[in-house]
Design a protein around this nucleic acid. Structure first.
Lengths: 185, 185
DNA sequence: GTAACCATGTAACCGGTTACATGATTAC
DNA sequence: GTAATCATGTAACCGGTTACATGGTTAC
């Protein structure tokens, strides 16, 4: 389980409310660990009870008040402990791969649209990552690098590499499906 | 949810018992969709109740008897329906990425061993995939290709591409952690 | 004798998903 | 007025993980 740790990391990078965390999980850190606001509020409450995070009421003008959380010492300690525990190299969970193998028992060509849709989604994500890289790390207006930024950047490079690889593979899948369709004729 | 569909695909490729399925999920199809034997038995039972699969008692010598399942018409129909439903391009869930960003609030160099351990695991998996590719698809003793095999092969190529990409990225991570450690001195 | 493999399950727990719920403000 | 954004939750369900349980066979 790493969602609580992901939240701790995000709050250490910058304190914020549950809502703000949910938005971050739609962006940066959420690219590698997805979470909905329901999950986040639940875990935030548990971590507050355990003394891992501390809320601060922030009154806002022309917006609802919010609870801004920051990490307390026990939360930092819990994160440090987790960082020193080994984790299992994870196995991928690739639903599309199951579909592709399943297509052998249906019509392979019928999968083309689905695969092409996935290709577009991954191309969009890659463009998005690259724009973020330029804005935050390699562009002329990027902030000065430090340890935290370097580590964020290497994680983002991982996301970019993943999307590039996925695009190339989906092209391979599309070509294979075309070929199988052509052979049948 | 795709585990039941993954099981259907696996049973269509070759009928088998729950135990055999569990072994396959430790190999081929499980590279893209992990499952334990407990899960498999539970879903197998449910699918049997729903008439999606049919068991056949097989007596074995010098081994316990087994129930060999094969896919019945309703199961095939359920699979076909799922194949035609669009699925969301999935987001990765990368615990190591959370750790890397978290290392900014701990000692980045302390992560090196963990990252190197993951690197070795992925190198092993890549070697394993490549051996399987040679054995089943590209080697001189590989069976003759057909639609099913072509699709299995393109999925395996995806696994190989994923592991290659991951290895290159982990090298990037290792170099970055070294650099950050050197700068601090 | 003991470890590895074959074979099938039950039970408890926990995390993730989906649906429901509320209410204010801002921009069109 | 209506859609989008900000803000925080509850509840039900379901799937996945972990622990427990049993019992036979084969190879060292």
């Amino acid at each position: 389980m790493a969602l609580e740790h992901a939240i701790l990391v995000s709050l250490l990078e910058k304190p914020g409310s549950g809502y703000e965390l949910a938005r971050r999980f739609d962006r940066s850190i959420g690219y590698f660990w997805a979470a909905t606001h329901q999950q986040i509020y639940r875990i935030l409450k548990r971590m507050e009870n355990d003394g891992w995070v501390e809320p601060r009421e922030v009154a806002q003008q022309s917006r609802p008040d919010k609870k801004e959380y920051s990490v307390a010492a026990p939360g930092r300690a819990a994160l440090a402990q987790w960082l020193h525990e080994p984790i299992e190299p994870e196995s991928v969970r690739h639903e599309l791969a199951v579909k592709i193998r399943g297509a052998a028992f249906d019509d392979p060509a019928a999968l083309l649209h689905e695969v092409e849709r996935h290709r577009r989604a991954h191309a969009d994500r890659l463009a998005h990552y690259r724009a973020g890289e330029l804005r935050d790390f390699t562009g002329p207006d990027a902030p000065a690098p430090d340890v935290g930024r370097e580590l964020q950047h290497v994680v983002l490079r991982g996301g970019i590499a993943y999307e590039q690889m996925t695009l190339a593979w989906l092209d391979d899948v599309i070509a294979t499906l075309h070929r199988l369709g052509a052979e049948k004729r």
